[in-house]
Design a protein around this nucleic acid. Structure first.
Length: 975
RNA sequence: GCGCCAGUAGCUCAGCUGGCUAGAGCACACCCCUGAUAAGGGUGAGGUCGAAGGUUCGAGUCCUUUCUGGCGCACCA
């Protein structure tokens, strides 16, 4: 609604449009140029961030000034915040997952530091293990060195490999460290921890000694992939799957007691029935101890060409066709569970086995009755453990049978045994059918020979064994302690981590901690002269002492007596009575790398005096099963409590379609490219914006978005800084006091209220690890509160008021306070940019931003600590004006300074703000009207425009210098 | 197959214990400014809330099933 100008002014009779005096200047056609008289913005803080070049410079400055050390000493006496880095594996270039993880951690380190806490963050690396050994071995094989190494003695061979691995790991760590520092992360990179450091290894052995002492450690048979050619256990990564032809045989196992089978099926058999099994590894039959059936599938007793056989009902047709049976008659059917407990006679070993139930039995291949040899299969092994069967493995390391099998098999190698077994079964009448079967079969990646599954002795940490001896929580098992910790003492962020980890702990099996490799920390066990095992808590501690100074290489280069130099059998209650140290020989199992990483709370937090427990562990959600759990179990066993109070997990990065990232799929983003194209700050800004608790989509486009948003924040900072070039050099407390003294009804007062709220909100979000919330609050504050509202409103007074006018100075005090607050709040996300702004504000010799703490305006702001609720109406009025102005454009009022507006103010709520409304709405004049219903716009284009402020506020007239100026500008210029 | 999680405008996300016409930012369209200018401002158009059932006076919000995707585990005798 547009009113006539004279109506609006309410001065229709008396015109303010006086005939201006015609000055000489105007006669001469000269208009004074007022631009030089304005206080236009000026700053050294550039609009263009140029991050790809500027960040490395900042980094170099930080490194040469050792800011990690500077921050540490500044916080020396402050309350500690213990935060512990989970060690990434020292292999390969860092990927975007590392970027996410390390930046999130750095945000914690820096935000906690800004709160004044002392956070000594030590970065770590996981160094041992198969991926490195595998990679090194591949190189050695390719270069032909492996053959030479193989000719060395065991200790020398292992040392040769270990030296290569250590060199490789060291190189990887160096490269990764550089990349992580390039992400502008703040950590003690001068003193990182590596799991291969001697002191670290000693710390790991101490943990192991503690577990041994509490009775959690035991040795037991377990099937592993075994290379006959190399006489070693192999890990999954060392296997290559190739097609292989094996005999596929169907075998009848005769029931031990006909009457019991009769009873189960409710029929009377005329001859002894059999259970038909299927296998493609006939050589494992000598180790058969059981037959597994599925408890809820149906099994039929059938007459097959005169013989009675039990077979899964579902498999009947398939099997009879295959074996070519002509007369098939099903006599009765029962559930698998009914068969459980029945016994059968082993076809060629003098013993009986029994039927057991197993859920993993499928109806895809075979007969639905699964040959079970606990010494030769993982499933079989678990079934065996559950059923209390012996983990029987008659096959020796060289692939031959021992003396426990029938004589015709003794000493035969398993591959020859296949044929022998088949022939034997054929002769004895147990073989129902045999054919060749081609399947994918694991092979040793080095010798290219097929591997076998063979039970070997391994070390375990039992999760259900009660703690024994003196110490915390005697009688409790690791599982029960872990359940207690998960349920009662650990805080999970996000919350669902609780149920996830609980489920995992409920189900986890005993922890197999031994590996048969060279690149790792040896399990310091010895073999005694009478073939026993010697390893006690005290002996492990003695070896730990040796390792502390000489490293774990000592195990390979020293004699047992040297390794046990500090061991005193007399004072070791667990020492075997007949112990003869000089007759010990070393065993060569190494620790699962998870055990090493899982001991970091001891090797790093306790040994280096950082503090225990850690306030926080922060890793990807895969670590619920990994590092979190495998750190918690040893700590519970040794200390009785978890090594962390809070677990924060982040999800995994997926591509824009939600698909997993992988190099092979070609959807992986290269960190170096991101840093080059966007800079670490934009990457960090993106990380801070992400909802990290679930899957995180990542794409170049999202970095573009983050870059835009970063620029917005940067430009807002720039605007603030650029209007402070001539501000008095207030001290921090002076400027805060001045800013906080802003009148509640002033734009400055409003901004101060918003600023206090922002500081409170962002700090709370940081402490909740809700970085996204902090990010959004900061962005909205810069984008909306500052850029769109405050800066726009305050421009006029900053540019046009006399430089030293109280009103302008007041606003400058608020601007300065806003920068002080923002720079601190932004520092955890954007350390480089925040510091850049900080130095633009305080000069290059300013004290280090990262040793500052938050201003804590809420505690210092007096009446501004809460927002003034009256501003809500003012802001509503402001947006109503925006809309009205939009409508006025069609009438030719395109520039808001050409407009005046009337605001309805029935209850006088706007009245106290009257003097600020024109600036706030960006128009030349505002009038309040108690009777108006809607905002109305008036066209001021026929009023003279101030040459300096471009406003048409009704006071514009020609001044002594010949220019058309409003009162305020005339005063500013002094005419 | 099992456990945990997610699925709301083109994109990233808010929507608490179920209740007015489902919100924000970005992107987009149109416009303004040219004294934050390889900047700044305004307005606007975008959604059958993965799908199907159910509970309820009423569901994006609760229950069941299902689809898609992620993490972890198990499995191929």
């Amino acid at each position: 609604m547009i009113q006539d100008l004279s109506d609006w002014l309410g001065i229709s009779g008396r015109s303010t449009l006086e005939q201006p005096r015609i000055t000489l200047a105007i006669l001469m056609g000269e208009t004074p140029d007022y631009k030089p008289t304005l206080n236009l913005p000026k700053t050294s803080f550039p609009m263009k961030a140029n991050l790809a070049q500027a960040e490395p410079a900042t980094l170099a400055r930080w490194q040469s000034a050792d800011i990690a050390e500077a921050v540490a000493s500044a916080r020396a006496g402050a309350p500690p915040f213990v935060f512990h880095d989970g060690p990434p594996y020292a292999n390969g270039s860092i990927h975007v997952g590392h970027l996410l993880n390390k930046v999130l951690k750095d945000i914690v380190v820096r935000s906690v530091g800004m709160e004044g806490r002392n956070c000594h963050y030590i970065p770590g690396w996981d160094c041992h293990g198969l991926p490195i050994e595998h990679r090194v071995m591949t190189t050695l094989v390719e270069s032909g060195k492996a053959a030479k190494i193989d000719t060395l003695s065991d200790d020398h061979r292992r040392m040769a490999i270990r030296r290569e691995c250590a060199a490789y790991a060291t190189k990887q760590i160096k490269a990764q460290s550089t990349q992580m520092q390039r992400l502008l992360t703040l950590a003690d990179y001068e003193n990182p921890y590596f799991t291969m450091q001697p002191e670290y290894e000693a710390g790991t052995l101490e943990v192991f000694a503690g577990l041994l002492e509490r009775g959690f450690v035991f040795r037991q048979l377990k099937p592993v992939h075994w290379s006959i050619a190399n006489q070693t256990a192999l890990a999954e990564a060392e296997l290559e799957y190739e097609d292989r032809v094996d005999p596929s045989i169907y075998v009848d196992f005769e029931a031990a007691d006909r009457a019991k089978v009769d009873a189960v099926f409710g029929v009377e058999c005329e001859c002894t029935p059999s259970f038909m099994i299927w296998t493609t590894t006939p050589w494992t039959l000598p180790a058969n101890l059981a037959i597994a059936v599925h408890p809820t599938h149906h099994y039929a007793l059938v007459e097959l060409d005169g013989a009675l056989t039990v077979i899964a009902a579902e498999m009947l047709a398939k099997v009879t066709t295959l074996v070519g049976a002509t007369a098939v008659k099903s006599l009765a059917t029962v559930l698998g569970s009914a068969l459980v407990g029945l016994e059968y006679r082993h076809p060629f070993c003098d013993r009986t086995g029994r039927i057991v139930a197993a859920d993993y039995v499928t109806m895809e291949d075979g007969t639905g009755l699964v040959h079970t040899a606990p010494g030769h299969g993982d499933d079989d092994y678990r079934t065996g453990l559950r059923e209390g069967l012996e983990i029987y493995c008659p096959v020796q390391g060289d692939g031959t049978f021992d003396a426990t099998v029938p004589q015709w098999l003794q000493g035969k190698i398993v591959w020859d045994a296949n044929g022998l077994v088949v022939e034997h079964l054929r002769t004895s009448g147990h073989l129902v059918h045999a054919l060749d079967f081609t399947h994918s079969y694991p092979h040793d990646w080095r010798s290219r020979t097929p591997v076998i599954f063979r039970a070997t002795e391994q070390w375990f940490i039992g999760v259900d064994r009660p703690a024994v001896g003196a110490g915390a929580r005697t009688g409790e098992s690791l599982r029960s302690m872990a359940m207690d910790a998960v349920n009662n003492s650990i805080k999970f962020v996000p919350q669902w981590g609780h149920s996830r980890m609980k489920g995992m702990i409920e189900n986890r099996p005993d922890w197999c901690i031994s590996r048969q490799r060279a690149w790792g920390l040896p399990i310091p066990a010895f073999r005694t002269s009478d073939e026993g095992i010697f390893m006690t808590a005290a002996s492990v501690r003695a070896v730990a002492q040796c390792v502390r100074t000489k490293g774990s290489d000592a195990w390979f280069t020293r004699a047992p007596s040297e390794l046990l130099a500090s061991y005193d059998a007399a004072s070791d209650p667990d020492a075997p009575k007949t112990l003869k140290l000089d007759q010990l020989t070393k065993l060569y199992d190494i620790f699962d790398v998870w055990f090493e990483a899982g001991s970091s709370w001891n090797s790093v937090l306790r040994h280096r005096g950082v503090g225990f427990p850690s306030e926080l562990y922060l890793e990807g959600s895969d670590q619920h099963r990994g590092w979190f759990q495998l750190s918690m179990l040893p700590a519970l066993g040794v200390v009785g409590s978890a090594p962390f109070r809070t677990l924060v997990t982040h999800g995994f990065l997926v591509d824009r379609d939600g698909k997993k990232m992988s190099k092979s799929a070609g959807n992986a983003l290269d960190v170096d490219v991101l840093l080059k194209d966007f800079g670490a700050e934009v990457a960090r800004w993106w990380v801070s914006s992400v909802a990290y608790d679930g899957d995180i989509r990542i794409d170049l486009d999202y970095f573009k978005v983050a870059g835009e948003s970063y620029r917005k924040v940067r430009n807002t900072l720039r605007f603030l800084l650029s209007n402070l070039y001539d501000a008095p050099s207030w001290s921090e407390s002076e400027v805060i006091a001045l800013a906080c003294a802003s009148a509640s009804e002033s734009i400055d007062g409003w901004l101060m209220g918003e600023l206090v709220a922002l500081e409170t909100e962002v700090r709370a979000a940081y402490s909740d690890y809700d970085f996204r919330r902090a990010h959004l609050a900061l962005f909205n504050f810069c984008n909306e509160t500052l850029s769109s509202v405050y800066c726009a409103a305050v421009k006029d007074r900053l540019y046009c008021d006399a430089a030293a006018s109280p009103r302008r100075r007041q606003t400058q005090a608020v601007l300065r306070t806003a920068v002080e607050v923002l720079v601190r709040l932004l520092a955890p996300f954007l350390p480089h940019t925040a510091e850049e702004a900080w130095m633009a504000l305080r000069g290059a010799n300013a004290p280090l931003l990262f040793v500052q703490t938050h201003l804590d305006l809420a505690a210092r702001g007096g009446r501004l600590t809460t927002r003034d609720a009256r501003w809500k109406d003012v802001m509503l009025a402001r947006s109503a004006v925006s809309k009205a102005l939009e409508g006025a454009k069609s009438l030719g009022i395109e520039n808001p300074l050409d407009a005046a507006c009337t605001l309805p103010d029935a209850h006088g709520t706007l009245a106290p703000f009257a003097s600020e409304l024109a600036d706030l709405c960006g128009v030349s004049q505002v009038k309040l009207d108690a009777t108006a219903q809607v905002v109305t716009i008036a066209d001021l284009r026929s009023l003279p425009r101030c040459d300096r402020s471009w406003r048409r506020d009704g006071t514009v007239r020609q001044r002594s210098d010949g220019g058309m100026l409003c009162d305020r500008d005339a005063q500013s210029v002094g005419v």
